[in-house]
């Protein structure tokens, strides 16, 4: 029963809540990140799971997945399908350069305890908060009120031909990653540097965790953990080739009213190639 409930909740909430439970990890992973030839195709899987890149829990819904092309313009997700445990789609890379595939959302969330001692929340599950409704939806004298402005972003990158950097331009909304080292030019034994921004400014002391795929075939998580410096920068040394999942989280109290807390979640899939 517990499992069924959590499965249902996760499936329906994965996109509407700023965060999913820490235990469940959302990812969009390409079958290849470095491509040659004209107009190559790439296929992607998207899911929410415990073991990275093993689709064993819930599909990641594609309705908010978008693509940024190297020279701009619309790129359609093709052959979309959402199954029991994963979604899949294809992209044709008709422009040469680097593409960003992402899903980003943000919103207000309020939690408090009502007069009867019951936990209350706004917006209701599955709904998007409208700041104009805040005053009427949340009681003025709400007990233990916490209001957070949360952002959530899931990304991956693929490159046809020579890597380009146009798609790295930040939107300056929420927690975002700006690569210093190109994410489609990662090699085992080398070190990559990235920068995290929160609403366009350096995200200082954000927590970063990196996990190698293939978790089912080892007995420990072997996570790599680091923290961003005062410029929002962090570095990762890739121990070996493979597909990696990066997760970053950020929290501060520099929120716009009515929020009192600002949070950000960023995850991305990166491929590291052998030398």
């Amino acid at each position: 029963m517990k499992f069924t409930l959590s499965t249902l909740l996760l499936t329906s909430l994965a996109l509407t809540l700023p965060f999913t439970s820490q235990a469940h990890r959302a990812w969009i992973v390409p079958a290849a990140t470095v491509l040659s030839a004209e107009d190559p195709w790439v296929t992607f899987d998207a899911a929410v799971s415990n073991d990275i890149f093993h689709a064993d829990h819930a599909p990641y819904r594609l309705n908010m997945v978008e693509v940024l092309a190297p020279q701009g313009g619309e790129v359609k997700l093709q052959n979309e399908s959402t199954g029991k445990y994963r979604s899949t789609f294809d992209l044709q890379l008709s422009q040469q350069g680097t593409y960003k595939v992402f899903s980003a959302s943000s919103g207000l969330r309020a939690r408090w305890v009502d007069a009867e001692g019951k936990r209350q929340g706004w917006p209701k599950r599955g709904q998007q908060a409208d700041v104009n409704d805040f005053a009427t939806a949340v009681p003025k004298d709400a007990k233990d009120l916490s209001v957070s402005q949360g952002s959530r972003r899931i990304e991956t990158f693929v490159t046809a031909g020579s890597p380009t950097t146009e798609v790295f331009a930040p939107t300056n909304q929420g927690l975002e990653l700006v690569p210093v080292t190109h994410p489609n030019d990662l090699f085992a034994g080398e070190t990559a540097q990235f920068k995290l921004l929160i609403d366009g400014e350096a995200a200082v002391a954000a927590k970063v965790m990196v996990l190698a795929g293939g978790m089912r075939y080892r007995n420990s998580q072997d996570e790599i953990e680091t923290t961003t410096d005062d410029q929002g920068l962090f570095t990762i040394s890739w121990p070996k080739a493979g597909m990696y999942w990066l997760s970053a989280s950020y929290k501060d109290n520099k929120a716009n009213a009515p929020a009192t807390e600002r949070t950000g979640s960023y995850t991305a899939s990166f491929e590291v190639l052998p030398q």
Binding site: A32, V34, L35, S36, A37, E38, P40
Partner: peptide, 9 residues
């Protein structure tokens, strides 16, 4: 269709 280029990577 230059299919051979697909594997140059």
């Amino acid at each position: 269709n230059d299919e051979g280029q697909q594997w140059l990577k």
